[in-house]
Design a protein around this nucleic acid. Structure first.
Lengths: 251, 251
DNA sequence: GCGGCTATGCCCAGAAATGGGCAATCCCGG
DNA sequence: CCGGGATTGCCCATTTCTGGGCATAGCCGC
């Protein structure tokens, strides 16, 4: 593990960053030392009750940054979507191992390449309900990605995200609109695709009561429809992904 | 970092496990060396198109294991839910920092304590669309949790989950039911709580067409209702959490 | 070029969800 | 012991969704 000392050094440097400027400098140095040309760290905090906050530290070409922000491409960026699907870092060239790429996605990647961004490696961290972030390292088009440094990049990226999380403030969890047990059950079965009537049969109560539970649950979250109720419960951790997982695929 | 060598040793031991039995032995040893009494590793693979697979390796008391499996408590286990909300390991005593605890949740934790499981530390890893897993280390009731070992446990747990992932087979992603661009947009706005009519206004097309897109999207996933369509798209990475996040809180 | 897929538009009937009001019982905490 | 919340039950009117069928136009690949 000849890179161990480098990793340690870079990680220490980054975790010591107490301001965005220092994080930029540390990441810039780290990317350079690992053989990358570019880096970008994005961190978004949400949920919990307070307003969200976000951080973007990067040295991407202005041309690309302007396009990205100008057209609000973060909403469709396939790299970002893939980041929400991986627990480890991934190379951009393998992004279609994680998500299906639409025509528009390929176009976006092509434009990025034309703007001076070649292949890259992204370390994602996602916390449904709290925050989502990614730390990417990239090379110029046609440049070779330093494969032997991906392991180091994985650690450095994770440390950088932890640092960003500290900088942006972790915030404390506020249980906000905790649902009652019965409401939670109704939401859960609803997320599993059951109608109010089916849920009623399962729980052994009247359909009207299920409707009532869902109604109150919607009011707690101040949402008008079932879709959002389910998503809110999911984000809040009131129901889990695995609670639902087994129900939509096998059927 | 006096524990560094121990961590390295345990991690190496665990990552060398090529069978479930060896993983059990390695984890058993690791838990012991770190000062824990109990451990439990759960790993569930899903998505991608193939059948799911799961692994459960633990040395929890039989009494508790029987109750847990018998009553299918995994569906309500607050520790598991919290694991889906944290990117780092967490102590069970702090579980309410991550999710709201209902009365039933507290009851479940109480029963666990009565079955011989005290405080613990869980390392979660979650990949929407591929797998979810957790590796927990626990002590007997009234025993003190080895706080100085949590950092080691974090690494050991992550290594164990990676090993489990290898053992269970990673499988490859099959793009299965990729939605078209238009369908994706309709699903996205639907997830944001818009009705078909509203979505139509936003996209500048007829409401009937939006309905049609959503209809075909449902057929692709073979789901009968909008809730599940959205969840499927979410799990597949066709839409991202952050795509929806900004829409339900601020409104 | 032709078949397949995509996007667009429209119609209909039945099922489900939504929003509102009303009322009973039970249990927990102040 | 009383108030508030949780749970249960029912009614109504309106909106939305779902599943079916039908048709046109454009684009891409074989």
């Amino acid at each position: 593990m000849k890179h161990f000392n480098l990793t340690e050094e870079l990680a220490h440097d980054i975790s010591g960053a107490d301001k965005e400027e220092r994080l930029f400098a540390a990441l810039s140095n780290a990317a350079d030392r690992m053989g990358f040309d570019l880096f970008a760290l994005a961190f978004d905090r949400r949920g919990g009750g307070g307003e969200g906050a976000s951080m973007l530290v990067h040295n991407y070409p202005d041309a690309w940054a302007n396009v990205y922000v100008g057209f609000d491409l973060s909403g469709t960026d396939p790299i970002r979507r893939a980041g929400e699907k991986s627990m480890t870092g991934f190379q951009w060239r393998n992004v279609d191992h994680y998500i299906p790429l639409s025509r528009g996605d390929r176009q976006l990647l092509k434009v990025a390449r034309e703007s001076g961004i070649g292949d890259g490696f992204t370390v994602p961290r996602h916390l449904p309900g709290e925050a989502t972030g990614s730390c990417s390292f990239a090379v110029a088009p046609n440049a070779r990605i330093p494969l032997e440094m991906l392991h180091a990049a994985e650690i450095v990226g994770a440390v950088a995200l932890a640092a960003a999380r500290q900088l942006i403030g972790t915030g404390s969890y506020t249980p906000r609109a905790a649902l009652t047990e019965r409401q939670r059950e109704c939401v859960l079965w609803s997320a599993r695709g059951k109608t109010a009537g089916e849920t009623a049969s399962i729980l052994g109560i009247s359909e009207e009561t299920v409707v009532r539970h869902l109604k109150i649950a919607r009011e707690r979250y101040s949402v008008p429809c079932r879709q959002m109720l389910i998503l809110c419960a999911l984000f809040d951790g009131v129901i889990g992904f695995s609670d639902v997982y087994d129900w939509w695929r096998p059927l």
